[in-house]
Write a protein that binds this DNA or RNA. Structure first.
Length: 236
DNA sequence: GCGACAG
DNA sequence: ATCTTGTCGC
């Protein structure tokens, strides 16, 4: 229903239509990393969605919540959610295989598409250049960016004390893979990287614009709060 | 071989 | 991610 299932269909080949084995997943990531588009669309962004997931350990369920906001006002437009069976274990570096399917399913419930989706995790700042934000962005073929609370891959120097200051995160070959961004004076930085159809400067500007007083940008912060409530309702 | 390791 | 009370500070 959402204007592009082409890529997802192609990917069923890579996913083999069967549960993706942990080994083999890395190869798929390297393969798909080439599909990450690092150029933003010319038109301005008017809406942004934030997504997050909560886990029901005993029930083995993943609860995904997504909230769509106007941008830059950040007024809520709608919120949707879904519950999925846990189909892939948590393995550092393979988070996309665990969470992207749930986020994609939830995205399908939005009545309105979004100009950007902010993901709780990394995009290009990943060992194989294909973090969760890229996984979601590429499969849905929409603009996506990652905002993580901890660095997973690459090296960076501590950004300056003031809100807005940033430093680049560089990969093994010195390539820029993301940015460490101070969203509040003196508070730990967040790690921003490209998911798809955007560039680093744009992503950093959006992360900063969405960080109103708190360290975590509103889209993912509120989505996190949302799934926290959903979890209590859905599980024990 | 050793340490690191998003959510 | 999740398990959890109080507590330091603006």
């Amino acid at each position: 229903m959402h204007h592009k299932d082409g890529l997802i269909k192609d990917l069923e080949i890579l996913y083999s239509a069967k549960p993706t084995p942990v080994r083999g997943a890395s190869r798929i990531q390297k393969e798909l990393s080439r599909r990450v588009l690092q150029t933003p669309d010319p038109k301005r962004i008017h809406t942004i969605a934030g997504a997050d997931i909560a886990i029901c350990v005993k029930e083995k369920k993943l609860v995904c919540g997504m909230i769509l906001f106007s941008y830059p006002e950040l007024e809520e437009i709608e919120r949707v959610w879904t519950v999925s069976d846990e189909a892939f274990p948590y393995v550092p570096g393979l988070l996309g295989f665990r969470e992207a399917p749930c986020i994609i399913k939830t995205f399908g419930k939005l009545r309105e598409c979004c100009d950007m989706i902010m993901i709780d995790g990394h995009g290009l700042a990943h060992p194989r250049g294909f973090g969760l934000a890229c996984h979601v962005g590429v499969l849905l073929d929409i603009p996506a960016m990652g905002v993580a609370k901890k660095c997973l891959y690459g090296t960076f120097s501590e950004p300056g004390f003031n809100r807005g200051e940033r430093t680049l995160i560089r990969g093994k070959d010195g390539e820029v893979v993301g940015a460490a961004l101070r969203t509040r004076d003196g508070v730990k930085p967040v790690f921003v990287s490209i998911g798809n159809r955007t560039d680093l400067d744009t992503s950093v500007a959006i992360a900063l614009e969405c960080s109103r007083g708190l360290r975590i940008p509103e889209p993912t912060r509120l989505a996190d709060k949302y799934v926290g409530l959903l979890k209590k309702d859905v599980c024990g």
